[in-house]
Amino acid sequence: MNLVVPIKMVPDLVEELVIDASGARLDPDTVRLKLNELDEHAIEQAILLKEKGASQVVVVAPDIEGIDEVLFTAAAKGADRLIKLTGRWSYDVSNRALARVLANFIKTLRPELILTGVQAHNDLDGAVGPALAEHLGMAYVGYVSGVLITDGSARVRKEFPGGLIAEMRVQLPAVLGIQAAEKPPRYVPISKIRATMKTATIETFPAAELETIGAPVNVRLSPPETRERALMIEGDVNAVAARLVEIFKEHGVL
């Protein structure tokens, strides 16, 4: 059982988001990138499946800033092969273009199961997973929070609103969009990641040419409009707590 996990980097929302002079994208010079959180869950789910008997976990990523550390971290967690695709990437490449390039490469790995984050917070043209599934002629199920491999198929738990789960049978090979791994992504100490850097290797392969067909056109970014911003309570925690008690009383909740 060969598992492939395609991942991507996204802007870290903890940082201030600055729109560049074109107005069409976040300023690449100030944006700080981190691994898409749901891709981290996809890595964890793949490693959990490996612990239950899958043979190999391959993590594939576009070669952009910060990716080496992310890949080594995946190896420290238990990933077997680390692959980066070199090319003229930018962090905000459209998912359509990314999926096409990933599909071209991933088909050479002949995976039985592909796990990827069901979405990323900066997706503007859908998610990578379903597009990848179409390119590879595989079935797709997203919003998955549990996977069990049986003979030639996967039993997956797909989330519906209100906490309802559908247990589904998915014929392999397939692509799954992971919402949450069965367990929280494991923590690995920096020392273990450093040790992995000395032993693990990142394989590089050239990416196919990027095509941007299908991406949204003439996009402008802006901060959200704030029609009714919260009335902010100033002061230290004592001042805030005292005012909150008054507010609770005024509104009859205390």
């Binding site: 998912n95 359509r96 999926a99 069901v118 979405q119 997706d123 503007l124 043209d125 859908g126 998610a127 997973g129 379903p130 597009a131 599934a133 179409e134 390119h135 797709y140 199920v141 997203g142 919003y143 797909k158 989330e159 519906f160 609103p161 969009g177 067909i213 299908g214 991406a215 949204p216 056109v217």
Partner: peptide, 21 residues
């Protein structure tokens, strides 16, 4: 969880632009 499983697939299949969120 429903539209997410089909829209991006159709967009790729039929080579049509897609806007999400």
């Amino acid at each position: 969880t429903i539209g997410g499983d089909v829209a991006a697939w159709l967009s790729t299949r039929l080579n049509l632009p897609l806007v999400s969120a």
